[in-house]
Amino acid sequence: MTRFLLRRIPQAVIVLFGVVTLAFVLTHVVPGDPARLIAGPNASVDTVASIHHQLGLDRSIGYQYWRYLVGLFHGDLGTSYALQDTPVASAILRALPISAALAVLGVLWEALLGIPVGILAAYRPGKLADRVTTLATLVGLSAPPFWVGLLLLYVLAFKFNLFPLSGYAAPYINYLILPSFTLGLGGAAWYARLTRTNMLEALRSPYVQMARAKGMPERVVLLRHCLRNVLSPLLTMLGMDLGYFLGGVVVIESVFGLPGAGKLTFDAIGTLDVPMITGAVLFAAFFIVVMNLLVDLAYALVDPRVRR
């Protein structure tokens, strides 16, 4: 356990360093001048130059990178260009709970919709439930989330007034149900298929035959003998999804007007807000790396063969 962490944590740091470097370089090679965007189209060359100086953009990229890393080391992610005087860290921390709620609910939808449907489909392959599942998951996998989101907004929020159209206010859960459902739908379809495949494999396996031969009723065969073997590979993917969602889901937060980390990233790209983009990317990468680590640990808990 300790050895595992000692090996994995340095790896994680290296990955994060790589992500910071890449994000920093990419935002600087993108054409466009943040100073001009801030100053507006009619600003004089002098104004733009003074903004350049203020932001430190007149220094070499190497120096800027160095300053950024030093700041990072002190826990300072810089100050946003677009949101005047707002530290990047506090903007992200403000957006984070919204993205976290969305991510957790999204993963819940994925698991709670996908896994039972997959089990049901696998139990009687080729029968009606299985065929309906195959069709539904095909639709779920193919439909782009922004389209599903807009459709849901139109029908449930606009036509029937069941949910708010956009934004984020109390009671928060009302504002989260549709976005999280949209977020989880594609994943749920994916998990339903995976669960079905794994379940079919488990049902055919000798240990399930053995459990039946022992006189275990179907309920015990399914719940005690199959489900663990089916769920342990899914656990990995659910954890990775959670990490991925925590960093903010750009498309869904934009469609539903949720002020989360994804929306923050989206807006920051629009205004070439370099510190904000780098910070958001760094946070997203951080969650993915951490969840990867946790997933590996959880996997060892579920599967004794991985334990050492």
Partner: peptide
């Protein structure tokens, strides 16, 4: 019926399978 079957298997009749590597559940 399924209930009778479950009560019968394991108690009155039992089976040993070919591959002991896969006939025991790896996670139990």
């Amino acid at each position: 019926d399924p209930a009778r079957l479950a009560a019968w298997r394991g108690a009155d009749i039992a089976m040993v399978f070919q591959d002991p590597m896969s006939s025991l559940n790896p996670l139990l």
